[in-house]
Design a protein around this nucleic acid. Structure first.
Lengths: 310, 310
DNA sequence: CCCGATGTTTGACTCAGTCAGAGATTCCCG
DNA sequence: CGGGAATCTCTGACTGAGTCAAACATCGGG
């Protein structure tokens, strides 16, 4: 049950943060809240008091007093805001910047000490996990199409294609090991021998994580390119990734001088079908078969590149 | 830079926790600290005050007063500890259990509401990421050998084998795409057709994450089993996983009636070689070759099952 | 048996954070 | 354009979470 997971993580992480400040020397001579204000000011040097209040969720009176203290200590200067005379423009003085830098340095050291307890080979996994938590929990500005990049595969990506194809179709449609074997064979043949001018694979990457793929290879029929292994992760669907992948294949096939693009798929894959249709593919044949432990209806689709100029 | 990542994650997660308690109704009529004490008591019904102090890092005087209040409200009873009369044994009353349950319910609801903002298909990734952060950060009781289980592959695991083999050997030894193709072909052949009595694959799993694998298949030589694709993730090495995987292969081969186990490896893989030697394999031949973009020395190893009875 | 360490309690205190009200100004609506 | 509601900032008055020190009891090791 995930609610339990989160709650126990909350308890855990509260301890982590508490342990960082063990002995309360971290923020001295300021309080945690004062430090947060200082941090905010240092990273957005010209802010109004109202901005601080909303960003740090502070009580107006409390903040006012904190700024009083900072002003007495010569850390900030208060001036009128240009846009609205009710507001006060707060800016750090040189001393204020120094104080912020000192706190920053202390925090960096403390966190660094904690990070030293993590084995170097584990750190990338940690960074990845932190990013995942952040993007999924609220900070999740929903990913936008322009965050997705198409790139060539690097070592391991072909394995990723096998893994995700097998795991996803097993979960969604109950495909068995036979399917994983088929995908593995396709990528094996591609890896062992392919002509980069005529055959290619793309990985769609979102925030550094692969979320989609497609492959195009020469078909047995001369002049025909075959599109294979189109896949988009469920949590990355709706961003037009499938469209871009198929678009890349079609453009590449045209460029490489193919006369047509063909592909084989199954009727249960409705979302993929719509993508193919949008790119001008037409259904040229259907045939039931039993594969991957399921009764399926295979479909052959075809895009005539000569009939549909760019 | 990872220190920055952690610090910004800390700020982020402090906000997350703060947002959960927005309006401060979460713990009413208790304070956060009181709630934590109550929670601790509810989950370890008979604890001494000293245990609470160390576990929650509380000031002794503060805790004493909190317990006073709880006792006045009839939530706890204080008695002498059996083992040490200086200590006080704290136990929840029925009312105390009810109060704890109420707080628990509220927390569950609040966290549940937050979780609802996460798309269902993203939740497994979130849970996985939280677990990773926890195990890597301090809660990292170093993994012990008994945390590792060997299991059969599930859909996606063969792809994982391809992915990790390719990525690791590319990073450590500069192997190129050719190697990924070789691994993909091996798993493809295995997936397409294998006799479960004579051929098998194991995945080593640590805390629900695959960290190692090995495969055994029939060799061309009659009566010989071939060990392939032995791999252990770098961050899981030193737990004897490689040993257990090879041990599983040897035991299986013996059981299945093979007369010998053979394998092919390369001289640069020193750690693997030691494992093979420990299990009685002997080097029967060496031959330089150029593969995977590197100059290598291939080695054939052999374990005679008849000469080395169980 | 003595001495330092540990466990608990109470008194006295600090200071982070809240609440309400006042004065200045802007924004919105008729 | 005028007036009322809302916004921004500040101060006074307060609450209450958490700390520190002292006192007393008991344990454990030499």
């Amino acid at each position: 049950m995930t609610v339990q997971d989160i709650r126990s993580f909350n308890r855990f992480y509260t301890n982590v943060i508490g342990a960082l400040d063990y002995g309360r020397h971290l923020y001295a001579p300021y309080t945690l809240t004062e430090s947060r204000v200082l941090y905010e000011l240092a990273h957005a040097p010209r802010t109004d008091a109202a901005d601080l209040r909303t960003q740090l969720h502070l009580d107006a009176g409390y903040l006012s007093r904190i700024l009083n203290k900072f002003e007495e200590d010569g850390l900030v200067e208060r001036g009128p805001s240009k846009t609205d005379p009710r507001r006060r423009r707060i800016s750090l003085t040189e001393r204020g910047r120094e104080a912020a830098a000192l706190l920053d340095e202390r925090a960096r050291e403390t966190v660094g000490a904690m990070l030293d307890t993590v084995r170097a080979e584990d750190r990338p996994r940690l960074a990845e996990a932190l990013r995942t938590v952040r993007t999924l929990l609220g900070e999740g500005r929903a990913p936008r199409p322009e965050d997705v990049v198409l790139r060539d595969p690097v070592p391991g990506d072909l394995g990723w294609i096998v893994q995700r194809n097998a795991a996803l179709y097993a979960a969604e449609y109950g495909f068995n090991l036979e399917y994983e074997g088929l995908v593995a064979r396709i990528v094996a043949e591609y890896a062992e021998d392919h002509d980069p001018h005529l055959e290619r694979t793309w990985i769609a990457e979102l925030d550094g994580r692969p979320v989609g793929c497609v492959m195009v290879v020469r078909d047995d029929v001369p002049g025909a390119a075959r599109l294979r292994l189109l896949l988009v992760e469920p949590d990355a669907r709706g961003l037009g990734i499938g469209d871009r992948l198929v678009g890349a294949v079609v453009a590449f096939a045209r460029e490489a001088g193919y006369r047509e693009v063909v592909l084989w798929t199954n009727d249960i894959l409705a979302a993929a079908r719509r993508i193919y249709q949008r790119h001008g593919f037409v259904l040229v044949g259907e045939k039931p078969h039993r594969s991957f432990g399921q009764d399926l209806v295979g479909q052959d689709w075809r895009l005539d590149l000569l009939a549909t100029p760019e």
